[in-house]
Design a protein around this nucleic acid. Structure first.
Lengths: 127, 127
DNA sequence: GTAACCTTGACACGATCGTGGTAAGGTTGC
DNA sequence: GCAACCTTACCACGATCGTGTCAAGGTTAC
């Protein structure tokens, strides 16, 4: 056999066989099958599976997050729409007077619309 | 009062007041507050909220998806790691002998861990 | 030829998401 | 000074995620 079966793959990747099937059902892997339908895991797939574990742990995110990020990365329409949404971050800076901020907001919005401003990555620490 | 209160904002955006608070708790909006803590929704925020409804409906995705996509778009380390993962073709290179590939795999894995791991920023504890 | 594997399908269960409600208490408007 | 609003903090509920386990049946290995 030119690769590992699901139980062997489970052992070398740290995933359970159940989870390997689940990950496949989530669309994140697509191991080839023998003519009789047995999954075979080649070295590339095993590597991807190990890396996936690392990613989830290191960035504390979920399988569904990775699945959506994949969609985001490959669907340019989705990406464009979301990026556009991200850029419009109405925030009131400290120095703006209280009854001016609405107007300021509007002007900022207009500026953004008009001048094709590059993405503003204001990483505000959310609770 | 400049800007709408949460109930008024709810009415013009289609979200419930409950959901507006929830969306804020998810980190997707950050409406400013009056000195006594009342949220005020300016035109920019209202527009964002309407657009958000559109996005979720049009692309059939969840608030948590949008939140993660935002993280993905602004965290270049996360983006690099995931993009790298997406692009990997699960394939065995030609030159590796059949009973060597597992070891080869292991070595590659170690190489990746060594070179791919970025400087440990204590900021990764974003729970 | 049988034991050990693989397949899909289902039930289950805790955790989280999305959403509504309610309660206790402070603020605003008139 | 009271009604109508706002705040946070809970409880609840169906849906989905992540995960285990088990059953019924086909396949492989020796």
């Amino acid at each position: 056999m030119e690769g590992l079966t699901i139980n062997e793959a489970a052992e070398t990747t740290g995933w359970s066989p159940r989870m390997l099937r689940y990950i496949e059902s989530a669309g994140l892997i697509e191991p080839p099958r023998t003519p009789k339908g047995y999954r075979i895991f080649g070295p590339g797939e095993l590597q991807r599976l190990r890396t996936l574990r690392e990613l989830l742990a290191r960035f504390d995110c979920a399988l569904s997050d990775v699945a959506f990020a994949r969609r985001y990365a490959s669907d340019s329409e989705l990406r464009a729409a979301l990026e556009h949404w991200f850029e419009r971050r109405p925030e009131r800076p400290e120095g703006v007077a209280s009854d001016d901020w609405l107007t300021w907001e509007q002007r900022k919005h207009e500026r953004l619309l008009a001048t094709d401003t590059p993405p503003r990555l204001t990483e505000t620490t959310a609770a």
